[in-house]
Write a protein that binds this DNA or RNA. Structure first.
Lengths: 197, 197
DNA sequence: GTCTATAGGAAGATAGAC
DNA sequence: GTCTATCTTCCTATAGAC
């Protein structure tokens, strides 16, 4: 195999791990299967990462960045807040339907982080990031569109983040897209009712 | 060890498995640790269950029954729908705060069921049960209190189930009880606004 | 039904040559 | 930096005596 600098190998192994975990689930993904997916031998793995734990930490931070990009890309300002929320949910939803395994993986990694001693801060950061991303977008919309909310921005952001999370999980378990759309409609109507011009 | 009928041993092992999984997480719980927790030898385990998979199926169905009991016990009719929802969330919340590990376990088992071939129906049944439980309670309240809703009962039930699920996960990751209460207040206000006498 | 003992394999991590 | 070969440990599951 061609010699590569360690940093690039680490990226390569992290991406391979994400593919393997998406396909097989976190508990069934072994260092061997990751090395095979990356096309390198097992000892290359341990040359680049001190342990499997160290790789998983790299996977978690990488996945989190991907996830925030998805949410950020989904939310594009529309004429009204209600339309923005609805379009945002819809765009996010297309991503979930197209890549369910990736979203399932985020839940598995959250569970892993909550169980593994010393990893709890990663789960916390993940959920803070969700809420902060929504809060930033709401704040931005509030300024450009000039409306007021009858609920503090951080509370509404937490509400939307929680809703997104619950809906995704429900869809992964039930696969009932229509039920999710009905709920999204209820939520968007609710958000619209919180706007005061 | 005293001889016991197989059915009782199965119950004993299932309860021991739930304790071990709550403590150690699903992936780290081995047949050995379960047998040890139950105070029996490893071969007793395999005498009662064909495989580890068979035991986990027993664990999932048992946990689901427990969970529905918790939700059902939490929701007691109050003078108004809003108060009922609020009191229900609060009672459910006390259970989550008192037994976070148990609730974390339900998510781990959902993930397990979604990944394991032939177990997907268990995850689906679990989420159907959540929604059906809420729908039954809403229907019951609607009849005894005589109100109408501007949203179909199944949709509102799905909304509440999704919200419960998302909130629980958020609490497990962040541990921010106040943020959850703020969101619950927003939700209860929302539900109240859907009532038409 | 319950036990001890063990088969048989797969996991994470390392050794040492190149 | 990368390889093959191996160490050590732990797993699920079974065999066979009592």
């Amino acid at each position: 195999m061609a010699r590569k600098p360690s940093a690039e190998r680490r990226r390569q192994l992290t991406e391979a791990a994400i593919r393997a975990m998406t396909r097989d689930g976190v508990p069934r993904t072994t260092t061997r299967s990751i090395a095979a997916e990356a096309g390198v031998s097992l000892s290359v793995f341990h040359y680049c990462f001190d342990s499997k734990q160290a790789l998983i930490e790299s996977v978690i931070t990488t996945i989190m960045d991907h996830y925030v990009d998805v949410v950020r890309a989904a939310i594009q300002p529309q004429p009204t807040l209600q339309e923005t929320i609805r379009a945002g949910f819809r765009a996010y939803w297309d991503h979930v339907a197209a890549h369910p395994g990736e979203h399932m993986l985020t839940y598995e990694l959250t569970q892993y982080a909550l169980r593994e001693p010393g990893f709890a801060h990663l789960a916390r950061r993940q959920y803070e990031l969700y809420a902060d991303t929504y809060a930033g977008l709401l704040e931005q919309l509030r300024e450009t569109m000039g409306f007021e909310l009858s609920v503090p921005v951080p509370v509404l952001a937490g509400y939307l983040a929680t809703m997104t999370d619950g809906l995704t999980l429900s869809f992964l378990a039930l696969g009932d897209e229509k039920a999710c759309m009905d709920i999204i409609d209820t939520v968007t109507d609710h958000v619209a009712s919180l706007v005061r011009d």
